[in-house]
Design a binder for these strands. Structure first.
Length: 492
RNA sequence: CUGGAUGUGGCGCAGUUGGUAGCGCACCUGGUUAGGGACCAGGAGGUCGAAGGUUCAAGUCCUUUCAUCCAGACCA
């Protein structure tokens, strides 16, 4: 089985695609720009979902579900919002097919044209706010904290597995509050949930910050983001949390009677992360041998590969493995005993490596005689011979070590690729090398746009919890005064 | 939408100046193997993206068309 992966250094895109395919995460589908997420890839997504979902619920958020289709009239109520999404919407115009009169296949029945077209949701703000209008009458009804796990469709011109697909899975939270402060706090709380998840679960050292006005969500007053650095030095927006002000409340006329009897528009937030997180995971941690999964997210944390020549040896090894497996599972560790009799050990080693399983245990007659076992770790590819007795404790500790090591490695990489830059000429060449540049910015959209036009670099965020750099300086492009540095990078 | 490229067994590819399709991997059978992607022997599987044209003869030449990939443009 050919599983060679193109080295990162040769073609980063190809390297990424290879890992997606060869680690058995996803494949291309018959529909342009849409992918099939395979069981192994989906299992990782399910782990992400369960951890995030728990974190959401701890903050009082409840899950709900809203329609896939949005009447065109709903969608066009918020002017900025529609401007942001209009170019990439799938539209339902008919509701029936009929046999082709010329006998070949089926055609759309022209008589089944919808009076009002339906938009396949690119995001659900509009349909949700049309519903919230009926839910909200009094200050006692607030806050409303809903999240939905669903798919959305954005007809992107160019797609890439996980990073940008025409259809993708995500969660979108939509909250309604009585005051601006409360809404802003909610928005901050949720970006905090994302940052904690990215760092502790995905081992991704993200930077939290505000988006510049140019990069904000269509219809938001403020957008908070977690920005990650990929191994080619490019930035990836991994999650966002928006303070929507009263824009949607006003567009959908959502008002409530306040304690003092006055009628007020509610304040809103929305926040989301998507299967793009899987793309971030792949690009941040993988190496040229394949996927590297942080133990917390790995569907299989430990794989056992038996080595034997005879049936007697096989039975003895499998019996010992089954015993260890029980002990590991008792500690909550997910274990796969690869007892396939048709494949050789070397093949299995390579296969599980491509799939990113954090720990591999190999056991053969030689080990049984010596009372030892071989434990290999995916992140460093190191192998150790350890005592069979108590190996479950060793493995449990190792999983924690690996989780931490993957994070530390990514953090060291990120920090090695962040630098300050105060000279425009230097900026133009440095930014092309990848990595983040911390530069002064005068706060204007014009400057930001000019820099983007000249270099393709955008302001990834105005950091609030790492790389914070509040100091007086002069804008790298315009030379105007600045109160602090922001993060510039070329992004996915 | 702009460039560039590619469509040939499941996957990856070769196929000279046109002569009726081949290789590697995977698959099936049998055997030997087994501590880093095994080996030997045998076997099955394709009207070469689609449509039309030139020709005695088209995977190969011409026209049209469809699809995909890469780089742009685009993208909360």
């Amino acid at each position: 089985m050919a599983k060679e992966i193109t080295p990162r250094s040769e073609n980063y895109s190809q390297w990424y695609n290879d890992i997606v395919v060869k680690a058995d995460l996803a494949e291309q589908s018959a529909v342009r720009g849409c992918m099939v997420i395979k069981p192994y890839g989906y299992a990782i997504w399910e782990k992400m979902q369960s951890i995030l979902d728990k974190a959401f619920k701890e903050t009082g958020v409840q899950n709900a579900y809203f329609p896939l289709f949005i009447p065109k009239s709903f969608f066009s109520k918020e002017a900025e919002h529609v401007a942001g999404f209009a170019k990439e919407c799938a539209v339902v115009t008919h509701h029936r097919l009929m046999n082709n009169p010329d006998g070949k296949g089926v055609v759309v029945d022209p008589d089944a044209k919808l009076e009002e077209e339906l938009i396949v949701r690119p995001t659900s703000e509009t349909i949700i706010w049309s519903v919230y209008k009926n839910w909200i009458k009094s200050w006692r009804d607030l806050p409303i904290l809903c999240n939905q796990w669903c798919n959305v469709v954005r007809w992107e011109m160019r797609t890439r597995p996980f990073l940008r697909t025409a259809e993708f899975l995500w969660q979108e939270g939509h909250t309604a509050h009585a005051t601006a402060e409360e809404a802003q706090e909610e928005s901050k709380r949720m970006v905090g949930v994302y940052a904690k998840f990215a760092r502790e679960t995905m081992a991704l050292p993200v930077i939290v910050g505000h988006k510049s006005p140019n990069e904000r969500f269509a219809g938001a007053l403020d957008t908070l983001t977690i920005e990650a650095m990929m191994q080619d030095g490019k930035a990836l927006q991994a999650g966002t949390s928006h303070f929507l002000g009263q824009n949607f409340a006003k567009s959908f006329d959502v008002q409530f009677a306040d304690k003092d009897g006055s009628l007020q528009y509610v304040w809103a937030t929305s926040w989301g992360v998507s299967t793009r997180l899987l793309g971030a995971l792949i690009m941040a941690h993988s190496d040229d041998n394949g996927l590297v999964l942080p133990p917390v997210l790995a569907p299989i944390q430990v794989v056992m590969v038996p080595i034997y020549k005879t049936d007697e040896e096989r039975e003895a090894v499998l019996a010992k493995f089954t015993e260890i497996k029980g002990k590991l599972e008792a500690k909550g560790i997910s274990v796969k005993l690869d007892d396939r009799d048709t494949l050789r050990p070397g093949f299995k080693f390579a296969e599980w490596e491509v799939k990113g399983v954090p720990v591999r245990i190999a056991l053969g007659a030689r080990d049984l005689a010596a009372g030892t076992v071989e434990v290999a770790r995916r992140d460093t590819l190191e192998k150790a011979t350890v005592q069979l007795e108590g190996v479950e404790g060793y493995v449990e500790e190792l999983l924690g070590t690996i989780q931490k090591n993957i994070y530390d490695k990514a953090l060291a990489f990120r920090d090695a690729n962040i630098r300050k830059c105060d000279d425009w000429e230097e900026f133009k060449t440095e930014i092309q090398k990848g990595g983040f540049l911390l530069c002064h910015w005068d706060g204007t959209a014009e400057t930001e746009q000019a820099i983007k036009d000249a270099t393709k670099a955008t302001i990834r965020c105005i950091p609030v919890d790492s790389c914070v750099c509040e100091e007086e300086g002069r804008d790298i492009f315009s030379g105007k005064p600045s109160k602090g540095r922001v993060v510039f990078a070329i992004a996915y």
